[in-house]
């Protein structure tokens, strides 16, 4: 592990990275070297979907910070809340930038939480496909309906309804569609290269 740390720090001297979980995440060539708007929204919404999946998400998040040695980037729960509030669509949005190292930490945390829920995510997506093929509503599957209901609750309680982007999800069908799309996106982050894939996708169309 020490060898990995040394190599990683040599590759990216500008970022003080202490966690092994962030190895291999290359800084993208974006103006300002801060996370763009879409990146902040996507990261927060993926974490929102993971919270809706897991009732113990708060405790698992704190355990993840410790397991991944992310405390230098995310010190505590309040710090995490402030980082997530860089999402401009939140009610209490912090008009602060999200640095690349903080973004990497959130990516590693999201993938850590997603891996813990791999079985559930697969189960829900398979169930949704089966319901769709039988022309049944999502209410016929208890866990899927529960996930969608929790996601709706989290979304409306934390997002700013006055924003146009949030008003577009006012209809329950639209919000369910978003929740299911996030579910499949989270599944792709659970794999062997999930961290790298999520990190690269966050800057799609943003790099020069």
């Amino acid at each position: 592990m020490d060898k990995n740390k040394t190599g990683m720090q040599a590759d990216s001297p500008t970022v003080q990275v202490d966690s092994y979980a962030l190895t291999g995440l290359v800084d993208p060539e974006i103006p300002g070297q801060i996370c763009p708007r879409r990146t902040r929204i996507q990261l927060d919404w993926m974490l929102l979907a993971l919270e809706a999946l897991d009732l113990n998400a708060q405790e698992n998040t704190l355990a993840g910070l410790q397991d991944l040695q992310l405390q230098p980037m995310i010190k505590n729960r309040i710090h995490l809340w402030r980082l997530r509030n860089t999402n401009p669509l939140r009610r209490f949005s912090q008009r602060q930038p999200l640095s690349l190292s903080e973004g990497k930490a959130l990516v590693a945390l999201a993938c850590y939480l997603a891996r813990r829920q791999t079985g559930t995510i697969r189960q829900l997506l398979i169930a949704y496909d089966q319901l769709k093929s039988q022309n049944l509503s999502v209410d016929h599957h208890f866990r899927l309906a529960q996930y969608l209901e929790r996601f709706r609750g989290h979304f409306f309680s934390r997002m700013n309804p006055n924003r146009v982007a949030i008003a577009a999800y006012e209809a329950p069908e639209k919000l369910d569609e978003l929740a299911l799309r996030l579910l499949s996106q989270v599944l792709f982050c659970t794999g062997t290269a999930g961290v790298e894939r999520l990190w690269a996708s966050l800057f799609d169309g943003e790099v020069v």
Partner: peptide, 18 residues
Amino acid sequence: LSAVQLFDLMEAIDQLAA
């Protein structure tokens, strides 16, 4: 392919690449 099938294909490729 469903999303889960695509994920399995992606994961198999990632394991191969690793």
